[in-house]
Design a binder for these strands. Structure first.
Lengths: 243, 243
DNA sequence: CAGTGGTCTAGACCACTTA
DNA sequence: AAGTGGTCTAGACCACTGA
């Protein structure tokens, strides 16, 4: 394995994490190619002055991420690229970052409104209490791609937050309120006349829909998102693994 | 924590796995409620005569599955049910089992055909070489729900396989050829006239589409699936976690 | 047979939380 | 101050693979 790993024992970053991060980087930029054999646990442990369980924890993290494949008696290999591609997108962080980073996003509405029954139930607050309501349109060039509605508890985002430059989730991260887990429901529907007008399609055109419930580390609901995507311009990729 | 765990030290099943499975069962059938505190690692280790790392491995597996939440200085808790519901469906096994188990599935076609360019590329075989082609219709009562097309390498499934009683994936498991990872792409489209006729909707009606590429443990492609679902009857739930 | 990863033990020190 | 999970070590035995 022709990759060197630099461990900083003075760093607060765990050793196993330093190792897994650097291996992941090597896999992603091609220094480790699909099918390449990784050094054995014993070799790595000796080479970097670590114990075997520490090396093992680094390897196991990459196996869980789907980047490495290990078999007893065989060794550890980088998985084939067709399997690997976009396997990382099951991470909430990547998913949210991407949904902010896309081409251009216009804020149509950012207001404080009374929670209706559905919003109140999802956010676990009392019906009629105030929530922030955000309505955005994502475009690529002149083409509208997605119509996104979001509702958030009032203490999660301030009314004068800058949601334009960095995006919603980037803003939440700066306030330390970033989502930890999320449930998504993906479906399809025919465009209503409102959606058709905003997304510049004909009424009844197929739309891809996504509803997201996001939660912080304590399990408290912090976001309800209801998004509609043009079917001809958008798809979701997910990856499944046997556990 | 009012749950007892029975460990069989003579079993080939790892101790950490016995423990995590029984805790998962307790969480899923309600014996452990959302928010319930789990015994600490030290308590569990002492109670069952295990070392702390072994207990820890069991806990960590359930954290990775999204069933438990741990915080330093706080302890380990069962996650809130709203977060937890269907979090397990990110497992390939559950997903494939469910797609077999659904109400009634009719095999429309099961044949050996020549691979076209797209099938050949996905399955990494030579264009024109034989592949098994499977066409199924899933119904609930009289209602058609999904139109499913699958292509598989000839050595993965024999031409006289029984795909009716157990389903495709159950059959693959019996032959030891079960999928290990899969990539799914979920989108939407308007029904073609063929799809409209099979699914009993009008032409142009919104359909939810799913394309799956499945791989075995070695990373070899073993299935291409192209499915179309009635949008009014079907949705995908996915769950994301910060890692 | 030698080498691999899979499991398990018995410790240790630390950062963080609550009280 | 006491208790929690997070990290790390230095061993051990085993099942599986390939030559």
């Amino acid at each position: 394995m022709n990759v060197d790993i630099a461990l900083d024992r003075g760093s607060p970053v765990p050793l196993y994490f330093q190792m897994s991060q650097q291996l992941q980087a090597a896999i992603e930029d091609g220094r480790l190619a699909p099918g390449d054999q990784i050094d054995t646990e014993m070799v790595l442990a000796e080479k970097y002055g670590l114990s075997r369980p520490t090396v093992r924890q680094a390897m196991q993290d990459l196996v869980n991420k789907g980047l490495l494949m290990r078999r007893r008696g065989i060794g550890t290999q980088v998985v084939h690229s067709q399997v690997r591609r976009q396997l990382g997108l099951t991470s909430l962080y990547d998913d949210l970052r991407d949904s902010d980073r896309r081409p251009s996003t216009t804020v149509l509405t950012f207001d404080t409104v009374a929670a209706d029954e559905r919003v109140a139930e999802v956010l676990q607050i009392v019906e009629g209490s105030p929530v922030r309501y955000l309505e955005r349109l994502r475009c690529e060039g002149d083409e509208p791609l997605a119509y996104m509605q979001n509702w958030l508890p009032v203490d999660i985002v301030s009314p004068d937050a800058d949601l334009v430059s960095g995006g919603l989730y980037a803003h939440l991260r700066t306030t330390g309120q970033s989502p930890h887990t999320a449930k998504q429901r993906i479906g399809a529907k025919a465009a209503t006349s409102v959606e058709a007008r905003v997304l510049d399609v004909r009424r009844g055109a197929p739309l891809l829909t996504m509803e997201r419930h996001a939660f912080d580390v304590t399990g408290r609901p912090i976001e309800l998102g209801v998004h509609a995507y043009r079917a001809d311009a958008y798809a979701f990729e997910t990856n499944l693994m046997e556990r």
